[in-house]
Simulated scan of single mutants.
Amino acid sequence: MHPCLLVGVPAEECSCKDFAPRHTPGHVCRIFGYERNWTAPYTYLLGCGVTRADTVPEGMEVRHIPAQTYAVFRVNGRMPDEILAVWANIWGSDLTRTYTYDFELYDKRFARPLNKEVDVYVAVDPEHMEKSR
């Protein structure tokens, strides 16, 4: 995903069509932004990548997702069970997470009637990732 600008709204109000033609077609993200770590409050939004956000509809927010290193987990199978299982594995793992922004990318692969796929991006410390290789 090349744009690092995501516009998000509470989950029940998501409508990326408000940003056509500025949004990345077929890409919807579930975004998690953290105050500090897993023990602190976090924000949870649905959004879409956009090329610019010069005008933002009322009730929507803009989040600039900085370039960072991610561990990426491809999820396929029965949804949402498989997504929950991947998150459970992430929570129990020894990944050195940065707790900036994590997100799930829902694209055309998720729209398939069978064999749905989602990518889960977890922000991690790049130095720790290099050491663990």
Rank of each mutant, 00 (worst) to 15 (best):
D119I: 01
E82I: 05
P80K: 09
N115A: 13
R78L: 15
V124F: 06
C48P: 04
T98Q: 03
R78C: 14
A11D: 02
F103Q: 05
C29M: 11
Y99M: 11
D102C: 10
V124Y: 07
G49N: 12
K108T: 12
R36Q: 11
P80T: 12
F32V: 14
G92E: 09
H27K: 05
P10D: 09
R30Y: 11
M129H: 02
T24F: 10
L5H: 04
A11L: 12
R109Y: 05
S93M: 02
E104P: 00
A123G: 14
C14Q: 08
V50G: 05
K116R: 14
G59T: 08
H128S: 15
V7Y: 10
L105S: 07
A11W: 04
V120K: 08
K131H: 04
D54I: 12
E82D: 08
G77I: 14
L46W: 13
Y70I: 01
R109C: 05
T51R: 09
P21A: 13
S15K: 10
V50P: 01
F103G: 06
G33F: 03
E58M: 10
C14A: 12
A88V: 03
T98F: 02
F103Y: 14
D125N: 14
N115P: 01
G26Q: 01
V72K: 06
V50Q: 02
H2A: 03
V124W: 08
T24G: 02
V72P: 04
S15Q: 10
R112F: 09
L114K: 13
R30I: 12
A40V: 01
H128A: 15
E82Y: 02
Y101I: 06
G33K: 02
V124I: 15
G77S: 12
P113K: 07
Y121E: 00
C48L: 05
M1N: 05
T24W: 04
R22M: 09
Y121N: 06
D102Y: 06
Y42P: 01
V9M: 00
C14R: 00
D81E: 14
C29R: 03
D125F: 15
G47D: 02
I90F: 07
M1L: 13
H2R: 06
P21Q: 09
K131L: 04
